[in-house]
């Protein structure tokens, strides 16, 4: 039974990171209807910037974490400014293909640094002995990661519900023409959406880097697992991303906990999200919380 609870705990940990990664993705989709395929690379960039600032420059990790969020904020904003701003009004298919190109470019840039091929891990700054309650253990990094994740999600939800900028972003996602008519600058909102997606991606990257170590393959795999998560949650719903992230984390942990090693299966945790994704696309394409206005063709 304690094995079961252990899987639940690690599922929630992984799931909350998925939720935070998915958050940035949903932000971009919600405001500009663009699927950002390069999201995993932005997550990885955030993690590597945090590492570089902590270990190579020597800044305390908490400050470095915040600084990398600020840097990715501006990085993502400039990506939007340089590549995507001039594609406003182009068919959405070419915008998505531009993000595929961006993914390749960021891949190349990361391979130019040592991070592309080597593994790094953050210096320990938290107690290394895990907390154990009734046979279920959780490490300090995981606990802190979950706490940061949930506080960031709470912060974002508050931002969208209450602040003026958040409300104007919601307005743009609802109706671009109407929001322009009441004086909201739509390009600015797009830029801001990318910037905030970058910020949340950096946070997610930092947390993943702390828990699993810095490996480029692992980090950018998170950007692809985001797709099953957002489809399950509904592409444009923030609370959907949170719920679906945790569900997906649990499914993954249960799959690798109970299926691996039986019937000659291995690494099922990696593939399960995609199988679920295909099933959802066939039967409930708008996900759990997505709005039902998907155009049937």
């Amino acid at each position: 039974m304690s094995y079961f609870f252990q899987l639940v705990v690690s599922g929630i940990v992984v799931g909350s990171i998925y939720a935070l990664s998915a958050l940035g993705f949903v932000l971009i989709y919600k405001s500009s209807r663009v699927l950002n395929i390069a999201h995993g690379q932005i997550i990885a960039a955030g993690a590597f910037i945090t590492y570089a600032l902590t270990v190579w420059v020597g800044i305390p990790i908490y400050i470095a974490f915040g600084m990398s969020m600020v840097i990715t904020f501006f990085l993502a904003m400039s990506v939007e400014r340089i590549f995507l701003r001039r594609l406003i009004g182009e068919p959405i298919i070419s915008v998505i293909m531009v993000t595929i190109g961006l993914m390749s470019i960021l891949d190349g840039l990361i391979y130019l640094t040592p991070f592309g091929t080597e593994n790094f891990s953050f210096p320990p700054y938290l107690p290394t002995t895990p907390i154990t309650i009734g046979g279920v253990s959780i490490s300090w990094t995981q606990l802190v990661g979950v706490i940061i994740t949930f506080s960031m999600i709470a912060g974002f939800s508050w931002f969208f519900k209450k602040s003026t900028i958040g409300i104007s972003m919601r307005a743009v996602s609802d109706d671009q023409m109407a929001s322009m008519a009441i004086g909201i600058s739509v390009p600015k909102v797009f830029g801001l959406a990318w910037a905030m997606a970058g910020l949340s991606a950096a946070a997610a990257g930092g947390i993943i880097g702390n828990i699993t170590g810095l490996n480029f393959d692992t980090l950018h795999a998170f950007g692809i697992v985001v797709f099953p998560v957002v489809i399950l949650g509904g592409l444009d719903s923030i609370q959907g991303a949170v719920v679906a992230g945790i569900i997906m984390g649990l499914i993954q942990q249960f799959a690798s906990g109970y299926l691996d090693g039986n019937w000659g299966l291995n690494g099922t945790g990696e593939v399960m999200p995609y199988i679920i994704l295909l099933i959802i696309l066939l039967f409930k394409p708008h996900g759990l919380f997505g709005i039902h206005e998907i155009e049937r063709v």
Partner: peptide, 18 residues
Amino acid sequence: TTALRPLSFGLVIVLFLM
């Protein structure tokens, strides 16, 4: 090579689309 290959492909995709 591993770095320049994705970089050049990505640039080519983006520049052609733009």
